[in-house]
C-alpha cells in the first residue's frame, strides 16, 4: 500500500530469511570481523583481473547464501544485483552461470537497499516467493575505475573514503521466520552541487536527509521508535552533516544513528580517513553484523538507508557536480 509521496507500506511484509557476507583482508582486520561469514585471505580470489575478482566475490557470496538457506537455484524467482563497475560487470559475470531470472541495478553505494526495496515489493506484491538481493564492491577495481592506478603514489585527502572490498547477499521470502521489511521509502536524486570527488559523504548527505524526511513524513514514525537508523557509507563527514541538519529539521537522531562506513573500520588505526564506502560497505555490514543483531533480537526495529553517490568521473571532469540518492527500508523483528 502506498503511503505518502515516496513510501510503500507492505501489507504482507517479506521476511529476510537468510543473509551472507564475505569481506576482504582489510575489512577482516576491522572491529566487525566476527560478524562476517567469511574473511578473504587474498583479495584477488585467485583471479587475473580486479573485475574478475569482484565478480567471483559476488558469486561466492551468492552461493554461500543459498547454502546457508538450504535453497536451490530453482527456488529463487529473481536475483537483483549490482555493483559500482561500468555496465555492472561484477554482477553480470557472477550471475551468468546461474539459472535465475536477473534484474541488474545501479544505485552506486545505495544498491543494497535499492535491491531490498524492489525485492520486498516483488515478494510483498505476490510476484515472487524468493528474491535474492546481492551487491559488492572491491577496493582495487573501484580505484582503477574511479581514481588513480593502485601503484600511483598519491595522498588521500582527509575527506576521502576507502572502498570496502566486500559483498552481501540477502534472501527475501514470502514466508518464514526472521526480521521483516515493513516499509520502503524510495529516494529522489538530489544534487547540491558538490564537485569534490574525494568528499562523497558531503555529496550524499543531502540525499540522505531528503529520504529520511520523506520517510518520517510519509509514515509518521518518530526517530526514537527506531533502535538504529543506519546509513550506508556517509562516513565521518557525511554522518556529521546528516545528524546536524536533521536536528535543524527538528529530528533528533544523535542517539540512534550509525553509519556502516564508520562501523566497518577502526578509522584511526586502519588509516581510512573518513571511513568506508562502496556497495559492499552497507552490503556486508547489513548482511553480516546488523542481520546477526536482528536475529539475536538485540535490535527490534531499524531503518536501513544506503546512500549512493552517482558519480561518473568523466562527467565530473566536464564540470558537472555529483548527484546522489538514498533508499530506506524499515526492518522489524
Amino acid at each position: 500500500m502506498r503511503i505518502g509521496r515516496q513510501t510503500v507500506k507492505l501489507d504482507n511484509p517479506p521476511v529476510i530469511i537468510e543473509t551472507s557476507s564475505i569481506v576482504g583482508v582489510k575489512e577482516g582486520e576491522g572491529p566487525l570481523r566476527s560478524a562476517f561469514d567469511k574473511v578473504l585471505t587474498d583479495d584477488t580470489l585467485g583471479e587475473k583481473s580486479w573485475e574478475k575478482s569482484e565478480s567471483m566475490l559476488q558469486k561466492q557470496t551468492m552461493l554461500l547464501a543459498l547454502e546457508k538457506a538450504t535453497l536451490a537455484q530453482g527456488d529463487i524467482d529473481y536475483i537483483l544485483a549490482g555493483d559500482l563497475l561500468n555496465q555492472c560487470v561484477g554482477a553480470h559475470y557472477s550471475v551468468r552461470d546461474f539459472d535465475i531470472p536477473f534484474l541488474g541495478l545501479y544505485g552506486a553505494c545505495s544498491t543494497m537497499t535499492e535491491s531490498m526495496s524492489i525485492g520486498s515489493m516483488l515478494v510483498g506484491g505476490g510476484f515472487a516467493n524468493h528474491v535474492m538481493c546481492l551487491t559488492s564492491s572491491h577496493f582495487c577495481s573501484s580505484e582503477k575505475q574511479f581514481r588513480n592506478p593502485l601503484e600511483y603514489g598519491g595522498q588521500r585527502t582527509p575527506s576521502a573514503q576507502w572502498t570496502v572490498t566486500g559483498a552481501g547477499c540477502a534472501i527475501l521470502a514470502s514466508k518464514g521466520s526472521g526480521p521483516r521489511i515493513t516499509h520502503v521509502t524510495t529516494g529522489k536524486v538530489i544534487d547540491k552541487g558538490v564537485t569534490d570527488i574525494s568528499n562523497m559523504g558531503a555529496a550524499m548527505a543531502p540525499a540522505a536527509i531528503d529520504t529520511l524526511l520523506a520517510h518520517f513524513n510519509d509514515t509518521g514514525i518518530k526517530p526514537d521508535e527506531y533502535d538504529m537508523i543506519v546509513t550506508g557509507d556517509l562516513g565521518v563527514i557525511g554522518s556529521d552533516i546528516l545528524v546536524e541538519l536533521m536536528m535543524e529539521e527538528g529530528f533528533d537522531i544523535r542517539e540512534n544513528h550509525r553509519d556502516c562506513g564508520k562501523m566497518i573500520y577502526d578509522i584511526e588505526k586502519q588509516d581510512v580517513h573518513a571511513g568506508g564506502s562502496g556497495c559492499g560497505c552497507c552490503g556486508s555490514v547489513f548482511c553480516g553484523y546488523i542481520y546477526r543483531e536482528l536475529k539475536r533480537h538485540n535490535l527490534k526495529k531499524i531503518l536501513v538507508m544506503a546512500t549512493g553517490a552517482l558519480m561518473n568521473p568523466m562527467v565530473v571532469e566536464q564540470g558537472e557536480s555529483i548527484p546522489a540518492v538514498a533508499h530506506a527500508v524499515t526492518i522489524e523483528n
Partner: peptide, 8 residues
C-alpha cells in the same frame, strides 16, 4: 615483471 597488488 610485476603485478598490481592489493592495498591496505
Amino acid at each position: 615483471i610485476f603485478r598490481s597488488k592489493p592495498k591496505k
